[in-house]
């Protein structure tokens, strides 16, 4: 653990990513304290005002403070990112574990199902499903989760395939451990580091997907603020109010970059093969 922490800190980009993620957490957690205005407060006297001392990131077409809306939007992004990835990781681990451990027909059926899921363009599938069940933050989280577990399943399967042949698994069987015990308490803890990395990278992907959906109007519904739906307003007013497009766009960029940096830092730090190379 210590070596890992040391390696992670040596990687400046990863540390920067970590600080950025931390910052996003703080902003989301203390949103009501930080934001200068109520994000949904309509002010007819200040419609589409450019950034100024009062409204540091300007206002939108209803006179709402963009800075405040973005701060509340960060909470939405975070929640969607983590819940969706949580669901995806859970499903992926279960399917991957069953597939890798039992092999044979179980494996073939699950892996073909994964192939089918991967062959469907995710965004269109989500759009179609959302059109049926209606957009809400919970639906978005669940749908993103249900459509992004395949990578995790493949990772876990690969880990299980190699781990189940290891001698300590045979030894555990010789000591009388049953299948469930072997899967959950012997193999799983040994296969978690790549899953952990892919989960962190997955958060970035989920946030991006949520923003895309909200931008298309099938994600988080106004008036609840989300970076995606602020962007939509930006698109409508792009000729007169550049700040509506630029700042939420930068926020998305910042967040996705942060998670990707942390994810790659983790991968480097957790991979013992990279430890050999002097740095």
């Amino acid at each position: 653990m210590n070596i890992f922490w040391k390696r992670f800190k040596q990687n400046r980009l990863a540390t920067a990513g970590g600080v950025m993620v931390l910052l996003l957490f703080i902003v989301a957690a203390f949103a009501p304290l930080i934001s200068p205005f109520d994000p949904n407060e309509i002010d007819r006297n200040s419609i589409l005002e450019p950034p100024s001392e009062v409204h540091i990131l300007g206002t939108d077409d209803l006179g709402r403070d963009v800075f405040s809306r973005m701060i509340f939007g960060s909470w939405i992004s975070l929640a969607v990112g983590f819940v969706a990835v949580g669901i995806a990781t859970f499903i992926g681990i279960i399917f991957g574990a069953l597939s890798g451990y039992y092999g044979g027909w179980t494996d073939r059926i699950i892996m073909r199902f994964v192939d089918i899921m991967l062959s469907i363009p995710t965004l269109f599938l989500i759009l179609a499903v959302i059109a049926f069940i209606g957009p809400s933050i919970w639906n978005i989280m669940i749908i993103i989760g249900l459509t992004s577990w395949m990578g995790v399943a493949r990772l876990v399967r690969a880990e299980f395939l190699s781990l189940k042949e290891r001698e300590f698994i045979l030894a555990a069987k010789a000591m009388g451990a049953g299948d469930m015990r072997i899967i959950f308490s012997h193999i799983m803890p040994n296969s978690m580091s790549p899953v952990f990395i892919s989960a962190v990278l997955g958060v970035a992907a989920a946030i991006l997907l949520e923003s895309a959906l909200s931008f298309l109007g099938l994600g988080i519904q106004p008036p609840t603020p989300s970076w995606g739906n602020i962007l939509t307003l930006g698109k409508d007013n792009i000729e007169i109010a550049w700040w509506l497009s630029v700042f939420p766009g930068l926020a998305i960029l910042f967040t996705v970059l942060a998670y990707n940096l942390v994810g790659e830092g983790l991968r480097d730090a957790l991979d013992p093969r990279l430890w050999q190379r002097g740095r």
């Binding site: 300590f168 069987k173 010789a174 000591m175 009388g176 451990a177």
Partner: peptide, 28 residues
């Protein structure tokens, strides 16, 4: 059957393996 085997393995019949370096679970 598997269930009955699991009861016997480790309690009535046990086995020690050749490679002590790889026969223990590294994370516990």
């Amino acid at each position: 059957k598997d269930k009955d085997l699991q009861k016997i393995r480790g309690s009535k019949i046990s086995m020690i393996f050749q490679e002590p370096m790889t026969s223990l679970n590294p994370v516990f």
